[in-house]
Structures are given as C-alpha cells and as structure tokens.
Design a protein around this nucleic acid. Structure first.
Length: 683
DNA sequence: CAGCAGTTTGC
DNA sequence: CAAACTGCT
C-alpha cells in the first residue's frame, strides 16, 4: 500500500486484536503483515510445557480467524532465531516497518533489543509499544527516581501515578493486508502424538483465545468479583477470575481489565458497598503482582534464576530426587499439599493459595532448590509465566526483601484447616482419603487406628506417612541456615583478602545446571558495538543494560554493568558503550548507594552489588565470576523435551542484594552482603 | 470495654 | 517490617 512497504506486526504474547498498540499503529501506517514466529529453542530450558503449548496453539488459531475477518491473516514461521526470521520476512514482503509490543522477561529483553538493532541497521523503522502493563517499569520510581524494592510501595505508587494507564484501544475495523504471496507460513507443531490425548482433556475445561478471555472477564466482573475478598481464602471454589492464562498470552489486555474493574469499584463505592470495594482492591492487587513481576524482571533480569538475596547462594539445598518425585506425584503425606499437586497434574491449574502452600512446602519442608519447583510449575501450569512464577517462588522462598522470612515454615496441616476447613478439596483430589472424617483429614497420621480402618486408609500403603516431619524440617532448616551464614562469612572474608575463594564449590553439592538461557546469545556481539543505531523514541522499550552484559559475562567480565544506568532524562537507557561507560558511572553510583544506605534501612537496590562489581576493582569480581556457583542447588532433573540442553554454568554475575529482612537483622554477625557493607563504609 | 502485648501474616 | 489479630487485664 501507501508510499512503499508494508508494516510487520510481530505478535508474541499479545494475541489479541483489541487494545493492541502495535497492531493499531501498523494499521494506521498502511498495509499489515501479521506474524508469529515460533522459536521455542530460544527459550532455553524454558521451552514451553505441554499445556502451555496447547494453549498457544488454540490461541493462535483464534487470532488468525479474527485477523481473517478483518482482512488479513497470520503468517506463522518456525524458527530457531526470531531475528533472522524477521529479516527474512522483511525481504519477502518488502516491509519497511516493524511493530511489536514489549516483553520483559530476560530473554525477550535481549532478543528484542537485538531485533531492534539489526532491523534498524537494515533501514527498517522499528517501533515498540507497551501493551502488557499499566505502566512501563521505568515509569514507576520512588521519590528519588529509583525503582521500588517492595511490592506494596510499588503498587501504591502505581495506583497514585499522576496519569492514568492508557485507555484500551478499540480493535481495528479493517486491516489492509500486505503482500505475503512470497512469504509462506510454516506449519507449527505444538504437540506430539503422545500429548494429544491429555490435551484433549484440556479443551473441556478451557477455551483459549481473546473472545473467551473477554467472556471470562465479564463473567468474573459480574459474578465472583464482588465476593472476592470473602472467598479468596477458599482453596476450592470457582471464585478466581481464571484470567491468568489469557493474560499470559495477552488475549486480553490488563488495561482493559483494570478499567472495567475500576468502573465497578466506583459503582460499588457509590452504593456504599464496602465489601465490594475491598474486593476490587484485592483483585487489583493480584493484577499489581503481575505488574510487579515484570517490574522485577526488568530491574533485575536474574530473578528467574537466582535469589535476590545474595547469601541464599550459600544455602545447602537438599538434592533429593525422591523428595522431588514425591512432591510431583502428590505423595508427600500432607493431604493439602498432595491434593494440590494432583490437581496441578490433572488440570494444569492450581488456586493461587495452593500454589503458595505447595511451593512453600517444597522450599521450607523439603528444602529442595526452588528452581526445580519453578521449573516444574513452568512445565505443568497452563498459565506458566516466567516473571510471575519467578516472583512467586522467590517470595515464598524468602529470597525477596518483602517476602516471607526464610526461616519460617508454614504447617500444611494448619493451612489445610484454614483454606479447606471441611476437607472438600482434599477429598476431591485424594480419593484414598475421601472417607476420613474432617477432624483428621489434614493430619491422618494422628488419627486413631480405628478411624483409619473405618475410612479404608492404610498409612504407608495406600497413603504415605509424611516424608518429612515438620519438626525435623525446622531443625534441618536451622542447621542449613547456620551453614549458609558460615559459608557466606567465609566467602566474604576471602573476598576481602583478595583470595579466590571459589564460593563454596568445594562443597559436595553439584553445580546447578540452570540457567543457560542467555548464553546462546553470546556470539552476536558485533551488533552490540554499534549503539548509535539506537535512536530512542519516547515509547520505546527500555533495556536494562544488564541484559547486554548478561550476554557476555563469560568472556568479558569487565563489561558487566550496573542495571540501571540512568540516561539524562532519568530513565534507564541502553549504555552507549559498556566499557567506556564505566568511569562516569562509578561516581554516580557510589554516591547514590551510599546515600541510600544512610537515608533508610531499605535495600539499596536489587542491583546494588551488580554495580558495585563494576565499581570495585577486580578483587570482588574475580572471586565470584569464576566459580561454579555450587551452592545454589543441584542438577535439574530433565523433563523437558529433548533438545533443550542444560549446561554447566551460571551466566552472569554474583548474587543479589543486601537486605534488611528481619532475618538478616537477627544475624548481625553475618549481616549485609559483602558489597553492601563495603558500600556503607565508603560513606 | 478500652488498651496493650505477643503472635501471626502478608507476596 | 507493619498491619491485623488474639487474648488478657
């Protein structure tokens, strides 16, 4: 169509036609080529799980038919490299522009940044948009212009921003199709034969696609929403919105959800319905959590693979595949946990509360490395979402500044009576316990023999005894923690002496196989050296500079860079040049950090010691970068499709942040992560 | 019953 | 940590 080429709209996790800024912009610009590129290998071991792929398949079909009714269709490509596929598409369609919506997971940050550079270098105009969040991560900062480090502060700020989130856009009335005659679609394969039968079951419970997402939203707002605050404690009722998988794939926009829900809230407020109003607040909070997960991922791209509290690196996880298996199969001996795990396996779904229960059990009682659990969630959840899941697991594990304390163990028995007081949920998913009276349903091991017999329960045979006692877990946790602090202290001492200590790989634990994701990007560095091709427009995707360094740490440690290099306008910006940039940054950062330490006892920032590594000389650097990072866990059992390789080493640098979590405060002898301490001495 | 301390809980 | 909750005086 008009003056030259058409525009490519690169669909990813924004599979909708309504309120899709990239699509809208492309339509405005003229002819459109709508594209979806399936390149799961790019996700490394976050290759999407079976149920997630099933959903994607349906959702794409749905999007395609919507596009068809508007005048075009979806071009699908199978690829191992999205960016080069984009180039191919540009060539075969004569497109001159590329539009897409932002993503915030670490892989996408890197890939999209590269896409922008590569295509821009080819003379293609690249424009990207916010379609996934109320506010872009770099828009939400505290009074000093720094990112928040706790959820509530973040969310309160979001709710009181000087401007509202963008109002949702209407779907285009009509789309003029670009010429795709020389750009044939590939058939995408999302399931293999062995998966088909299980997938068929999913279709009974779920229907992917934006129109059912809309329906789910409407149903929820007109139904369960008003009772949300009362019902959210129940494990077993259909009181959640069931929007999460739709939201994950962007079938409905959060902004639409937000606006519609807000309207209801005003309505209820006027009616004096405080319960309803409160319900909306709570529901919005869960939307806020989703926002926060992106925020965290952007500000701290390591968070899906490494605890944000650095000392957790030294925690001696239990490397026990039998525990892991028992957990997955729902045979831990704790009914609430087991019921949850069976539901997850059977349906790909789990109530939020129960996610917390099973995850917390996993980390605190079994003390398995949280990333195993996260990976299992990733593979089995219908709404698997890297950012949300990473946030959730970190929260539960106690590795966040505002998460639960690390030494806190929740007792599944008590939680059972809280979330499932009548035992209905347990009975549904654990038929072997169905006849047990409510009194014992959450702790069958205490039940009198006669009761068990009457209920047909034979502990240790048709239902397991607890695989780990809570008391034993508590004791082991204490031990593990003191071991952790010892190692942390030793490491710090060694670092201070400038000795290459090796960060605990002397230990018996196997180096963690995770994560490899980012390394595959490593060899595209030439592009990186040409920063001037980036002309940033207001709406453009910001890239935390760490994404660049993440790609290269292995061979170029000096370039590891702080996350939040502030451009003149105060927003994070792609560093002009990683190495040249170090000098000026050093001063600013130190100043800022010191001030922060003085002014409050809040965590400096997640990235405090990332940046310190730059600012510091090579002592600290060397102590961390060369180690095998042994303590973070063990080999991850493989259950992903073949092809996703787990290789040896961590990418990237060093641990997380200093912390004021109360746990830390109770351990003054080993307080503060090394860097933070050095920091405060500076000031 | 107001007022307070100890405890639980909350992303 | 801070808010909510519990139980006690």
């Amino acid at each position: 169509m008009s003056g030259g080429g058409c525009s490519i709209v690169w669909f990813r996790r924004d599979l909708r036609v309504e309120d899709n800024p990239a699509l809208a912009a492309a339509v405005r610009a003229g002819a459109v080529v709508a594209v979806f590129i399936w390149a799961p290998e790019e996700e490394g071991h976050y290759y999407p799980g079976r149920v997630s792929r099933w959903w994607l398949k349906q959702s794409l079909a749905h999007l395609d038919s919507s596009l068809k009714s508007l005048g075009t269709s979806l071009v699908t490509k199978r690829s191992t490299d999205s960016v080069s596929s984009l180039l191919d598409i540009v060539k075969s369609t004569g497109a001159t522009q590329l539009f897409f919506n932002h993503l915030y997971d670490p892989l996408s940050l890197v890939r999209d940044h590269r896409a922008k550079e590569v295509l821009t270098a080819q003379g293609i105009a690249v424009l990207s948009f916010n379609a996934d969040l109320l506010y872009e991560p770099w828009e939400v900062n505290d009074v000093d212009g720094r990112p928040f480090t706790t959820f509530m502060a973040f969310w309160n700020r979001c709710l009181s921003m000087p401007y509202d989130p963008e109002a949702p856009l209407l779907p285009p009335k009509r789309i003029v199709s670009g010429d795709v005659s020389r750009c044939p679609s590939d058939a995408l394969v999302f399931e293999d034969e062995s998966e088909k039968a299980s997938n068929a079951l999913l279709a009974r419970a779920w229907s992917p696609g934006w129109s059912s997402a809309d329906k789910a939203l409407t149903n929820f707002i007109n139904g369960p929403l008003i009772e949300y605050s009362v019902n959210r404690k129940k494990a077993d009722s259909a009181t959640t919105s069931f929007l999460s998988p739709h939201l994950h794939f962007g079938e409905v926009s959060v902004r639409k959800v937000f606006h519609l829900v807000r309207i209801k809230q005003v309505l209820w407020a006027n009616e004096g319905n405080t319960a309803g109003e409160e319900s909306v607040n709570l529901f919005l909070k869960s939307i806020g959590l989703r926002e926060y997960s992106r925020y965290m991922s952007f500000n701290h791209p390591y968070s899906h693979e490494r605890p944000l509290l650095g000392y957790l690196k030294f925690f001696p996880w239990v490397i026990d595949e039998n525990y892991f298996k028992a957990w997955r199969q729902g045979r831990t001996g704790y009914p609430l946990v087991d019921a949850g795990m069976r539901e997850l396996w059977a349906t790909g779904w789990l109530h939020d509360r129960i996610r917390v229960v099973v995850a917390s059990f996993f980390v605190k009682v079994l003390q398995l490395p949280w990333r195993w659990g996260m990976k299992y969630f990733w593979d089995t959840l219908l709404d698997a979402d890297l950012e949300s899941d990473a946030l959730g697991w970190q929260y539960i594990s106690g590795t966040l500044p505002d998460g639960r304390e690390f030494d806190r163990i929740d007792n599944p028995q008590f939680e059972g009576y809280k979330f499932d007081p009548k035992g209905e949920y347990v009975r549904r998913w654990l038929p072997e316990l169905a006849r047990l009276p409510t009194e014992w349903i959450h702790h069958p091991w205490d039940a009198p023999e006669l009761v068990l017999q009457a209920a047909g329960v034979e502990l240790g045979s048709n239902y397991p005894l607890p695989i780990v006692g809570i008391d034993a877990a508590k004791a082991r946790l204490q031990e593990a923690l003191s071991e952790m602090w010892q190692h942390e202290a030793a490491s710090r001492a060694a670092a201070e002496n400038g000795i290459e200590e090796g960060l605990g790989d002397s230990s018996d634990s196997v180096p963690f196989a995770f994560p490899q994701d980012i390394q595959m990007e490593v060899d595209h560095e030439p592009i990186r050296n040409n920063p001037t091709t980036m002309i940033r427009r207001y709406g453009d995707q910001m890239v935390p500079s760490i994404t660049s360094s993440l790609m290269r740490v292995e061979e170029d440690e000096g370039s590891s860079v702080d996350l939040r290099h502030l451009a003149e306008d105060g927003r994070p910006e792609v560093p002009a040049n990683l190495n040249l940039d170090l000098e000026p940054r050093r001063e600013t950062l130190n100043q800022g950090d010191v001030q922060m330490v003085r002014n409050n006892n809040i965590i400096p920032q997640f990235n405090a010691n990332l940046r310190l590594h730059n600012a510091e000389d090579s002592t600290a650097e060397s102590s961390s970068s060369s180690s095998g990072r042994g303590r973070d866990g063990g080999i991850v059992p493989v259950w992903s499709p073949p092809g996703s390789s787990y290789s040896e080493q961590f990418v990237g640098e060093e641990n997380g942040l200093g912390s004021t979590s109360s746990y830390l405060q109770r351990h003054p002898q080993s307080h503060q992560v090394m860097n933070w301490r050095q920091l405060s001495q500076t000031g």
